[in-house]
């Protein structure tokens, strides 16, 4: 199976799963923007998703996407370490034109995964999982707006942790987006610079808005 055995096949899986996760980030960002303007509207979206079959299927597909992306990243990293050989260079210098993020994608990915675990423990565990299990605390599982206020409004620790998470995600996406396009073969001498620029814009729009929204939640909570 060339998607498993071939170096380009494995990279293809990484790029497609990565692009899928970027699409999800855009969807999640839209939900967060709704919460900035109206907690009630945000709860309507939460209720609409809830534990319906399509939300459950979506969650499973999303989890599979994250899992595939992470497992392939692990496999590629281990193979690359082996290919590098046992002896390392005594003198190293990062060549001009090589982005720091491109050489630290695995570490950045690990930070993103840690942030994801924190985020899931804050929201998914208290909402979808609690609803499925039929066990929940004082806040109803469908009251996403209240959870946002609970975890962010006036909570500097969570706010800083989330901002660190988004900064790591920004670095990851600045390289990840154009790298995915390059792996798909949609690149040439003219578009190389353009895709790198677009990649930075995509990362900045997504992560920048997430950071701004997190700070708004810290200061004001969800919209009235």
């Amino acid at each position: 199976m060339w998607l498993l055995n071939s170096s380009i096949g494995r990279k293809l899986v990484m790029s497609i799963s990565g692009l899928f996760l970027i699409l999800f980030l855009l969807f999640h960002l839209c939900m967060n923007i709704v919460a900035v303007f109206s907690g009630e509207a945000y709860n309507m979206v939460c209720e609409f998703l809830g534990t319906n079959w399509y939300a459950l299927v979506g969650t499973l597909v999303l989890a599979a996407g994250v899992l595939v992306h992470f497992v392939y990243a692990w496999i590629l990293t281990m193979q690359n370490r082996k290919a590098r050989g046992n002896d390392r260079y005594a003198a190293t210098a990062r060549p001009k034109g090589v982005e720091w993020a491109s050489q630290n994608m695995f570490v950045l990915g690990l930070i993103v995964i840690l942030g994801l675990i924190l985020h899931l423990s804050h929201f998914w565990a208290n909402m979808m999982l609690a609803e499925l299990a039929g066990v929940h605390g004082e806040i109803a599982p469908t009251d996403g707006a209240k959870f946002i206020n609970f975890y962010f409004q006036g909570n500097i620790v969570n706010t800083i942790l989330y901002v660190i998470w988004f900064v790591a995600l920004w670095f990851h996406l600045t390289h990840g987006f154009w790298s995915a396009i390059q792996t798909l073969g949609w690149n040439n001498n003219i578009w190389l610079g353009r895709w790198e620029c677009i990649s930075k814009w995509v990362a900045t729009i997504i992560c920048g808005l997430f950071v701004v929204i997190t700070i708004i939640f810290y200061v004001n909570g969800v919209g009235a």
Partner: peptide, 10 residues
């Protein structure tokens, strides 16, 4: 045994 390209451009 060569590694996988991660497009670092090095």
């Amino acid at each position: 045994g060569f590694g996988n390209c991660t497009n670092t451009r090095a």
